[in-house]
């Protein structure tokens, strides 16, 4: 086995682990004690230039202004809906933040408990009060298809470098996909939808490993119906 020569590219750290004692700055999820930098969460050590921090491996989704998320309507009030976005706090969606003109008390005519919506995080204030909106291009209620849930920390792998992973999956499977920063992924398509769901599950399982795009691409190609491949080999 030549394994011992291969140095793991990612170093797993736990809270309290020493990240640096040579004078680097503390980045995300790190703190300084007596001039040394320590990890503040379970994750992967992440050093860049003079800063060292931790990329979390799990944990609850914390909304950030501008994030697009997929929410599930959990409760209805006369002038707002309460939306579960997988965060520690419920996100109220006010009637002024939907693309329809809603009369007071008419909320349930537009969105009901269990409905699924694509939203944007409008703002998160200091006390972590969240406001979301449905008034932006592309935001809407979604129906049909499937909703896949995964740790929000793995969402970036589903998207890939400048969207390369998700584009590849969409192109090969001909599915519609929407990735919420909160770890919910919506997939809709014909028979290939199952392949896209499985591809996303592979990304979730193997989020830690490299060459993921290539492997997922090979997986999808191996699962696509015969005729698709024949088309490609026509000449």
């Amino acid at each position: 086995m030549q394994k011992r020569n291969a140095r793991p590219a990612r170093e797993i750290v736990v809270p309290g682990d020493l990240l640096d004692d040579s004078g680097m700055d503390a980045g995300n999820n790190a703190y300084v004690l007596n001039g040394k930098v320590y990890a503040g969460v379970l994750g992967v050590r992440n050093a860049h230039n003079d800063t060292v921090g931790v990329i979390p491996l799990g944990g609850r989704y914390m909304p950030v202004t501008g994030d697009t998320v997929i929410g599930i309507i959990e409760d209805i009030g006369p002038s707002n809906w309460l939306v579960n976005i997988n965060a520690p706090y419920p996100a109220p969606l006010h009637v002024n933040e939907v693309p329809w003109k809603v009369e007071f008390g008419d909320t349930s005519k537009y969105l009901n408990v269990g409905n699924v919506v694509m939203l944007k995080v409008l703002m998160v204030d200091e006390s972590k009060k969240i406001q979301v909106t449905m008034k932006d291009s592309g935001l809407r209620r979604i129906e049909g298809g499937q909703l896949v849930e995964m740790p929000h920390s793995k969402v970036s792998r589903v998207i890939g470098k400048s969207g390369s992973m998700i584009q590849m999956i969409k192109n090969l499977t001909d599915c519609r996909m929407f990735v919420g920063q909160n770890g919910r992924i919506w997939i809709d398509g014909d028979e290939n939808a199952e392949i896209a769901v499985e591809a996303v599950r592979i990304i979730e399982r193997e989020a830690q490993s490299s060459n993921l795009t290539e492997r997922v691409e090979n997986f999808i190609k191996s699962r696509l119906p015969e005729k698709e491949e024949n088309k490609g080999e026509g000449y």
Partner: peptide, 11 residues
């Protein structure tokens, strides 16, 4: 707690 990804100074 650490497994839950909760930010903490130490275990």
């Amino acid at each position: 707690l650490a497994d839950a990804g909760i930010p903490m100074r130490d275990i």
